[in-house]
Design a protein around this nucleic acid. Structure first.
Length: 427
RNA sequence: GGAGAAGUGGCCGAGUGGUUUAAGGCGCACGCCUGGAACGCGUGUUGGGUGCAAGCCCUCGCAGGUUCGAAUCCUGUCUUCUCCGCCA
């Protein structure tokens, strides 16, 4: 959610910048400015009447105390009408505030100045790509066939247990997943992230805080009986750890990592592109999250980008890094880098990570603030910046590792994973 | 799931209808003191809205209600604790 001050102070700038996300904000911004003014007027009147009432109430108290009952009762007479006026204004304010918020949450985050213009993923800027991608001969198998051949993943039983998109990992397949999770968590810990195990179900306030609600309600599984949502990413519980918190400047940055399964309904997606592990309803992911001072958030983004890049290098995967264009960068993000690995058997790039700076967009919703250091007096609180990234999402990593590392002898396990798997080949 | 108790500022804790505009303490910040510190003394210290400012308004888990007036009374709800039941 954008800050109302930003819209008040530079509405033209907001409209112009959101155009780069292909979002026409003119009408909404006008609405917001008008509602904001109305809310302010109602509040002003309310405050004055309330002050009058508070003073009178205090006086009544004094009168009763000094035994002037008649005078007190007379004063009470006038209170009724005043009270009604105040009640009406409170109701007005509530409505203006609600309407204002309803408009505000519709505005996406302002894209960073480096975000290229464009409408779709074809306009994303490739900021790095390995010099050559591996090629396999014609006998090479896609990962779903390798998974069957070596009994790593049982998709059919997953369908039996739950439905499509809920695979059952077996034997070395299960062990391989566990190895990746441990490896990713250890790497993040080494990089200074605190490991956490968050809940996999969250309440409404948390889902709202990171921006899943109200817009993306249909993408989450909803446990209606208790009104909990299954997390679509660990970003949701981890970022909400600090919802409503007020930091001292010295407390920042805060860095967290966590492994969770992720649940996504992905309604209506079927076919070749989603075959095997390419797109699932439940998958595993290790997430990294940072809470930082505003002026440090782009350094932090670079830091996270380097971390993810290091993981891909260590795994020996061919990858590229994309700077998402205005049309492809997400609603809440100011700047996003996507990481894709090349799947040699499918001959296409698969997204395995997305690293984003949300600036103050999420922290505004969640009221995550800090108090700047100040030599004189108390500085006003300011919103912190939040960032997150996948480090990494497992299924497509598994897919590309299986495909790219296949040979007649079996599938080679990257060296960095061998201490975790306990085997160097899948045969 | 049942019965009972409790939720007050960064923390502890007083407060059962009107100088509570939330006592007191700890912590923190600044100042005095000091060669420098500790101790001591003084001032400040919930968060938010509005305003140049003084001020005014809201905020005692959350949401309603009663009242001229609510931290305080009533209803609902969430969380925590104790006991019972169930349980990895």
């Amino acid at each position: 959610m954008l800050q109302i001050q930003t819209i008040r102070e530079k509405s033209d700038f907001v409209i112009k910048e959101l155009k780069r996300k292909n979002f026409d904000a003119a009408t909404i911004v006008d609405q917001i400015l008008s509602l904001d003014a109305q809310r302010k007027a109602a509040q002003l009147e309310h405050d004055n009447l309330k002050a009058e009432k508070n003073a009178a109430s205090k006086e009544i108290g004094q009168l009763f105390k000094s035994g002037q009952v008649d005078a007190a009762n007379q004063l009470k007479e006038n209170m009724g009408a005043l009270g009604e006026k105040i009640d009406a204004l409170v109701e007005q304010m509530r409505q203006f505030e609600q309407a204002l918020e309803a408009e505000l949450v519709q505005l996406p985050n302002i894209p960073h100045s480096s975000v290229p213009s464009g409408n779709s993923d074809e306009d994303n800027e490739v900021v790095f790509q390995v010099e050559e991608v591996p090629t396999l001969d014609d006998t090479a198998l896609p990962h779903w066939e390798l998974a069957a051949k070596y009994q790593l993943i049982d998709f059919e039983t997953g369908v039996k247990l739950t439905g499509s998109g809920f695979p059952l990992y077996t034997g070395k397949g299960a062990r391989f997943q566990r190895a990746l999770i441990s490896y990713f968590l250890d790497q993040a810990t080494e990089a200074g992230y605190l490991e956490v195990q968050p809940p996999h179900l969250v309440n409404e306030a948390s889902a709202f805080g990171t921006g899943q609600l109200p817009d993306k309600e249909g993408q989450m599984y909803h446990a209606t009986q208790d009104n909990f949502y299954l997390i679509p990413t660990a970003e949701v519980p981890i970022t909400n750890i600090h919802r409503d918190d007020l930091f001292k400047e010295a407390d920042l940055p805060k860095k967290y990592t966590g492994y969770t399964p992720c649940f996504r309904r992905e309604a209506g997606s079927y076919g070749k592109d989603v075959r095997g592990l390419n797109r699932l309803h439940q998958f595993d992911k290790v997430e990294i999250v940072q809470f930082v001072l505003p002026e440090q958030s782009y350094d932090a983004l670079e830091d996270m980008k380097n971390h993810v890049e290091g993981l891909l290098k260590n795994l020996g995967l061919p990858y590229r890094i994309l700077r998402l264009c205005g049309g492809d960068v997400s609603f809440a993000s100011a700047l996003t880098f996507d990481f894709e690995t090349y799947s040699a058997a499918q001959k296409r790039w698969l997204e395995v990570s997305s690293v984003s700076n949300f600036e103050a967009f999420q922290s505004n919703r969640m009221k995550i603030r800090y108090r700047p250091n100040s030599t004189e007096g108390k500085a006003k609180t300011q919103l912190i910046h939040t960032l997150n990234g996948s480090a990494l999402a497992l299924p497509r990593i598994v897919a590309t590792l299986l495909e790219n590392n296949q040979s007649p002898e079996g599938i080679h396990v990257p060296e960095v994973l061998q201490p975790y798997t306990g085997f160097s080949m899948i045969r």
